[in-house]
Design a protein around this nucleic acid. Sequence first.
DNA 1: TAGTGGTCTAGACCACTGA
DNA 2: CAGTGGTCTAGACCACTAA
Lengths: 227, 227
Amino acid sequence: MTFRAINEEITQCIGDRMWEPGGLIPSERALAVEFGVARGTVNRALQELARAGLVERKRRTCTRVVLHPVRGARIAIPLVAQEIAASGATYRYRLLLRAERAASACDADRLGIEPGATLLHVRCLHYSDDRRYQLEDRLINPAIASDTLQESFEKEGPNEWLVAVAPFSRAEFTLSCRLAKRRGGTLLEIDPKAPVFIGERRTWLLARPITAVRMLHPHTHRLMTTL
Amino acid sequence: MTFRAINEEITQCIGDRMWEPGGLIPSERALAVEFGVARGTVNRALQELARAGLVERKRRTCTRVVLHPVRGARIAIPLVAQEIAASGATYRYRLLLRAERAASACDADRLGIEPGATLLHVRCLHYSDDRRYQLEDRLINPAIASDTLQESFEKEGPNEWLVAVAPFSRAEFTLSCRLAKRRGGTLLEIDPKAPVFIGERRTWLLARPITAVRMLHPHTHRLMTTL
DNA sequence: TAGTGGTCTAGACCACTGA
DNA sequence: CAGTGGTCTAGACCACTAA
């Protein structure tokens, strides 16, 4: 009897309303006897169910079937190169722009630095089997590493470089969509009247901003997660 | 020595590059000896690190430090009523359609049931301070509860009912966008040439499909998370 | 064939909760 | 004070990989 089997048995009981939403589940020790397994096995099964959100465990007290199962599920945003490689397609990268400049008011707002401070602006395209997959428009705070301004980003995207040099402690994501009529859309070579799907990410190391990136996808893009 | 402590020790080693990205980690048995704990404890610590994406485990072979740490973040998808209430706005609900019918091929594909099987189709609007906030189009598998077909959904949305009666063990999310020209868009009363932001969710209890819902938002919608 | 990660077992201790 | 979930231990077996 594996912990996976126990997991399914318990899920079954909950689904059959043998144990009601909000109600108590028998103790680990009781379940261990019932299923004829060690308590450790039941414990592992219940831990997984708790992580999945089907069950709520209260230390030193009890385990109950969760009353309002989803407060909000979560969707994963993968790194683009990994995402494309995982799909089996060939990943290709092209640098469009690399500029060091003083931050405009708009940049400053987006990245969270002082207007006039130096920043690095990078724009590049990610291809999946020669189809334009994502347009990346990124601001980087050069203060994060001593050699930021030496990076050319000719061969490799900023993401690969950043994950290697700049750990972050806080991130903020936004997903939205709009019509493609503006510059970004034409760079993706899509109909200006078609929508684009936009992901934005900003990261900080403690209070110091690291990078702000805007990722544009054709509207055929799907962001998917299973959990 | 707890598994959390082991976890931190190992994270430290990786952070200090004592074990290089892409390189091998000592075996569980070796680490158990080194830390003076049982192998089970090391195992648990490594499982967690693998889940966190810091380490890759290959069954019956080895554990290695992950080469490009997946900083894939996760976005929370809140329940609409909670989301609106949390924003301080007034939540209002209106039922547009409630139909029992035999599943078309398209329905069957979307919900994952046999074509011809009975399903419940519900369409409704969620308002935030009298602005149309979300159009919900939902298929429900009536087999999940004996009283599904008695539910009118006049006063309360299907979500509130479902969370109370139908726990799930697996969920799948998709986010995308498209032009509003089709029916959904007009029901949201937006310009047919403007894009709509679409979230889709499907849930199962073990292998049994529970519900498939499509949520349309005006393109001004933003989905945000901080973490 | 030696070594690996995945898993289960039986037993134990802990710090706490709730009656 | 009885019962709970959280955790650790020491040992075991398995199915597999890589040499």
